[in-house]
């Protein structure tokens, strides 16, 4: 069985607007996430991707349908903390996730909540900070660090809980390009070297192309999914759902529309140059 299995989940916030209940934020989603996978979920703001993320660690529970994490149903109350120990959630605003005034004390917060022995917390904190390359900053105040550094500390705070999966809800939306790069390369490293399962929610297409699988959401539903190549070659579909494609894919798509024979839509600069070189020789 898959590590996380989302089975026909519906969810709506209890808000009522002009007498009518607001549409479902998650509207019948089924999705399996395998151990060690890197899944990117993309979609425009308000498409339900953040709500879906909160379903994965029992922060929100489905109105109907089920989310099964490593065999446990998220709606079983006794399992809530087991699930949060297995699936860590990193949020968008790095400032609001750091709860202590010193980096290492913040990273220790999770294991402290779990009642881990002090020596073991120390070990986990050091390890987590090294994994995100922030060990030298362990005694700094998070307040003075850059956005990318803060977000990496937030990731370390989750890693110290020793989860099997990290879900990140637009972790790079508030960062500058170098901060984004720091966070993404950290995630790639965790996924490749430690086989960490990563679910990255984003609306930056250049981040999504790095994933093993891309899931496209709109209006609370999954529109399409597959490898980055298959998803990003559906340029028109993406545009219809208010999304973007990398410039290389867009160019290739336009040329294909004029009759150029292209087998594989290029997602990176190098692939695109190679493809065009081939075509023009």
């Amino acid at each position: 069985m898959s590590f996380i299995s989302i089975q026909d989940v519906f969810f709506s916030y209890d808000e009522v607007e002009e007498g009518k209940p607001v549409r479902n934020a998650v509207d019948g989603v089924s999705l399996d996430i395998e151990r060690g996978e890197f899944v990117a979920v993309i979609g425009h703001n308000g498409c339900g991707k953040s709500t879906l993320a909160k379903q994965l660690n029992a922060m929100l529970l489905p109105d109907s349908g089920k989310v099964i994490v490593d065999g446990d149903d998220t709606s079983v109350e006794e399992k809530t903390f087991d699930i949060r120990e297995k699936v860590g959630l990193v949020l968008q605003n790095p400032d609001n996730q750091l709860v202590a005034s010193i980096v290492e004390e913040d990273v220790a917060f999770g294991p402290e909540n779990l009642g881990v022995a002090p020596d073991e917390i120390r070990r986990r904190v050091d390890e987590a900070l090294k994994a995100v390359d922030m060990y030298e900053y362990r005694t700094h105040a998070p307040f003075k660090l850059s956005g990318g550094q803060k977000q990496r500390i937030a990731i370390a705070g989750i890693l110290a809980i020793r989860p099997q999966c990290i879900v990140l809800d637009e972790p790079t939306a508030m960062l500058d390009p170098s901060g984004r790069e720091e966070v993404i390369s950290t995630l790639l490293r965790l996924n490749r070297e430690q086989q960490m399962t990563v679910v990255l929610i984003t609306h930056f297409m250049d981040e999504a192309v790095l994933a093993d699988r891309v899931v496209v959401m709109d209006s609370g539903r999954i529109v399409t999914q597959g490898t980055p190549e298959t998803v990003f070659s559906q340029v028109e579909l993406l545009k219809r759902h208010r999304l973007d494609v990398p410039q290389s894919a867009e160019l290739a798509y336009k040329l294909r529309g004029c009759g150029l024979k292209i087998d594989k839509i290029p997602l990176t600069q190098e692939d695109c140059v190679a493809m065009l070189e081939e075509a023009m020789r």
Binding site: G88, G110, N113
Partner: peptide
């Protein structure tokens, strides 16, 4: 929310 996510 962040605190709850970290098992508080």
């Amino acid at each position: 929310t962040a605190m709850e996510c970290r098992c508080y």
